[in-house]
Structure formats: structure tokens, C-alpha cells
């Protein structure tokens, strides 16, 4: 199948891993995810000021301002994300929270805000947005416990809390394996979802780690005292040694 600007789908998947946006006006897209386009399109930085009114209305996430751009004009725009699956979501006066690195684009009719859970963005209102995932997305109704690494997001629900599996941790101690500085796996620590709504799970977050998590951590260090920064430094060194 050979596509051209007429035959490419409008606001639909080209295949499981590529999505074609029919841009007429403006759309927010994640930087670096455009793979090709037909037509007259321009790309402007969110922070550049050219679309101040639009950004003020729809982009309420200063931490991620460098991760998104505004696509303007008329044309067919194809997005891809390292061969990961891409799906579009239609919100009708709803809210969906998604791992920020996986938010590929959204219509300006939606409002994009930072979630209270670090590394996640919440999309509110009515409109379409795009998210990538490692493998197809699986929807689960709560109550459910999810490994943080496989969590893509959640809809119409309160934020999750952590739950530790003490049986598993005891077993690990019994085997004389050290936890110190080590990464905890999904078997000993999960995110616990309760209430009404849906949880979105993917097969792995590996390969999807964007800069946003790092930016988030760096931004939070600005409020630390000197002795706290030293403490942080020693933790980082310990982590590095344990890698």
C-alpha cells in the first residue's frame, strides 16, 4: 500500500506504530516524534511566545514546556515513537492521566496539566490525544495492583498509593539479597488502584524513558538545603556503585 497526502488516514493510525494527524490549525505534539509530513506545516516552540494565548489556555505544564511544540498550518503529519504502539483517545468531558514520555500529541481543546504523581500528565476536557505504549494497551478495572514500570496511566480515578508485599520482601531477606540502593521489582512494591475507573497497562516502560523524569528530579532539587544536597549526592553515588 502506497500512501499519498489524499489517501493517508485523517486522524487515524497508518499502522499499529504510526499515526497520521490531519492538521488544520494548531496541535500540540511531543518534540522529536514527527517522522514525515505533506503540506504546509510549521513548528513553533511552546515556550517561544508566538502562541501565548493558546499555550495559556491549553498547556498548563511548565515542567514539560521544552518537550512539546505547536504544529500549525494545513497538512498530513505522521508521528512515530521508536516502533512503539500508538493509540488515540477521545475524551468527552473526562480526564486521563498518562506517563508524560508517552503523550505524543493532543488537540488544543484539551487542557494538559502536571499530575501530582511525578512523571505523569493529566489531560482534561473534550478532544483527542495520542499516547504510545510498549505493546498494545490493556485496560483493567480496579481494584488492581500494578507494577509501576508497566503503568501507562489511569482514567476517571483518584491517584494510586503504594502497597508493599511484605511476604515477598521477607523471602528476599531470607535469601540474603540486599535491598540497599537496589531497584525494587514489581513483586515487592505495587501501585494500588481502588474506586471506579480504568487502569491502562503496557508490557514495559523500557525504552520509553524520556528526559521528563530527569527534568522533574532536577527541578525539585532547587528547593533543597546544602546539607540535603550532600545527602542526595551520597545516595546517587551509592546507586551508581550498585548498578
Amino acid at each position: 500500500m502506497i500512501f499519498n497526502s489524499q489517501t493517508l488516514p485523517a486522524n487515524d493510525n497508518v499502522n499499529s506504530y504510526a499515526f497520521c494527524m490531519d492538521v488544520r490549525g494548531e496541535a500540540f505534539i511531543q518534540k522529536g516524534k514527527m517522522i514525515a509530513y505533506y503540506g504546509a506545516l510549521r513548528f513553533e516552540s511552546v515556550s517561544a511566545g508566538a502562541y501565548d494565548a493558546l499555550v495559556r489556555q491549553s498547556f498548563n505544564s511548565p515542567l514539560y514546556a521544552n518537550d512539546f511544540v505547536v504544529a500549525t498550518g494545513q497538512g498530513k503529519l505522521i508521528l512515530g515513537d521508536r516502533g512503539n504502539n500508538i493509540d488515540s483517545y477521545d475524551l468527552e468531558d473526562g480526564n486521563l492521566t498518562v506517563r508524560s514520555a508517552n503523550v505524543l500529541g493532543f488537540e488544543p481543546s484539551l487542557v494538559c496539566q502536571e499530575s501530582t504523581v511525578p512523571g505523569y500528565l493529566t489531560l482534561l476536557g473534550t478532544g483527542k490525544f495520542l499516547a504510545s505504549s510498549n505493546g498494545p494497551v490493556h485496560f483493567i478495572e480496579p481494584p488492581v495492583r500494578v507494577d509501576e514500570d508497566a503503568l501507562l496511566g489511569w482514567a476517571d480515578m483518584p491517584s494510586p498509593s503504594y502497597r508493599y508485599d511484605y511476604g515477598y520482601m521477607r523471602g528476599m531477606f531470607g535469601m540474603a539479597r540486599s535491598f540497599v540502593g537496589g531497584r525494587s521489582s514489581g513483586e515487592e512494591k505495587q501501585l494500588d488502584f481502588t474506586g471506579q475507573g480504568a487502569v491502562l497497562v503496557q508490557s514495559s516502560e523500557m525504552g520509553l524513558v524520556g528526559r521528563s523524569n530527569l527534568d522533574d528530579v532536577i527541578a525539585r532539587t532547587s528547593s533543597l538545603q546544602q546539607n540535603e544536597l550532600h545527602q542526595l549526592l551520597s545516595v546517587i553515588q551509592q546507586r551508581l556503585q550498585n548498578r
Binding site: 500512501f3 497508518v14 506504530y17 504510526a18 514525515a36 505522521i78 512515530g80
Partner: peptide, 9 residues
């Protein structure tokens, strides 16, 4: 092709 290749005219 990393993911399904697309042919564009």
C-alpha cells in the same frame, strides 16, 4: 524497519 515500514508517494 523499526515498526512497520510506510510507503509514501
Amino acid at each position: 524497519s523499526d515498526g512497520t515500514a510506510i510507503q509514501l508517494e
